[in-house]
Design a protein around this nucleic acid. Sequence first.
DNA 1: TGCATCCGATACTCGAGAGTTCCGGATATC
DNA 2: GATATCCGGAACTCTCGAGTATCGGATGCA
Lengths: 232, 232
Amino acid sequence: MTELPPSTAPAPKLGRKRDHTRDPEILMAALEVLAETGYDGMTIDMVAARARAGKATLYRRWSSKGEMLIDAVACMKQGDPTELPDTGSLRGDLIAMIKQPSIEDGRKKLQIMAGIMSMVSQAPELAAAAHAAILAPRTAANRALLARAVARGEISAQCDVENLAMVSQSMSTYRVLILRQAVDRDFLVSIIDGVILPAAGMGIRSPDAPDTGPPEGGTPATGTSDASTPGV
Amino acid sequence: MTELPPSTAPAPKLGRKRDHTRDPEILMAALEVLAETGYDGMTIDMVAARARAGKATLYRRWSSKGEMLIDAVACMKQGDPTELPDTGSLRGDLIAMIKQPSIEDGRKKLQIMAGIMSMVSQAPELAAAAHAAILAPRTAANRALLARAVARGEISAQCDVENLAMVSQSMSTYRVLILRQAVDRDFLVSIIDGVILPAAGMGIRSPDAPDTGPPEGGTPATGTSDASTPGV
DNA sequence: TGCATCCGATACTCGAGAGTTCCGGATATC
DNA sequence: GATATCCGGAACTCTCGAGTATCGGATGCA
């Protein structure tokens, strides 16, 4: 990282090489500790112990705790293909998005977000990196889905796409971070059917109205038939 | 410390009395420092300096930093009458709610919330107290407003009142804490007109309606609850 | 008037965590 | 095989902040 060879003496490159295959393991350990204890609660020793590495090994690769965390958050971004579903209907697309990165994974990401948010005032660039890696891709996907629905005439062009694209992320984040409640599939479906779709002008899904036909063969009422009731 | 008056001698009550009129000043200073630096960034010395008090004075009143903050957050609750507006229409009510505790005040409260959220894993009761004092009253007010609109038939009884009541809080919190953008009147109006009202089945405010047009917030008017303070 | 307590201010102790250094051992280059 | 660097591990220094103790001065109560 901080090697700046002065052009004449590039780098001796002697001795044992650094094993960069360990980097991801260390960063993953850092993310786990961050999610469990928060930024202020986590210590370098915790990360080193979790990664079964020496503290010196960590400091050979990153100059400080903050640098390491920025790398950790950034590396979380890849492995997130964010391929858009295309079921033909807006509701089908939104539902399909729910478990693309599995609920549990999303929960952990929000925990990480909570851990980072604490030091937002001390290191804004870290918060920005976290947002870009965790939340922004989902919002962008929702925006694309909504735009596609507008394009095919499923919803009105008057829709406030920009705000609607953030509804799901906002309310999930609020639920986890503030309310300390779990974000499960039922909750996400209730957001889609109770807020996003009605706000897009698709009406409220009432039990007696078959409306736009059953969305694919998924049998919407399966699983928790009780929780799917739109009732108050 | 270990004073155990043998039931016959409850409290001598000698000497100078503690000046409890200083408590609010100290707690206010604590909230300011918390909002500015976050929980981990704030120190007892900062609070004492801000309040022009000695550190010993603080420890005579609260046994620890956490105790003091719990009191500070709790004391923030009062002075918040939360009187519901009643303009006759749901939109009028929601708009009237916007500047009840002035935008600037709301921003500071969200800063405080952000500061507290960091130590949510270490002291969940503090986070709960903060939620109860800051966000819950607003959500409850929105819920009441929506229920009233349902009662008078303005919106459908099928509405997902529970989720809709949290839309504004969720998206404002997300905007401040994650997006690091200001929550101004225009944003709140766009949430009301672009998400909440359409989701309640009141339709999207289309440009042919005489009410909308330019996206500037100065338009709605309707007499009583008009913005007397254009700034902020 | 005298005492006990409060006040603000300062100096102190103590623990925790960031970052550094050293160790014995492993490994790749020369 | 010599050497320079890596590794995990542990001990170390250094800083910072929570909490305590003490001081001179102010104040209420007997």
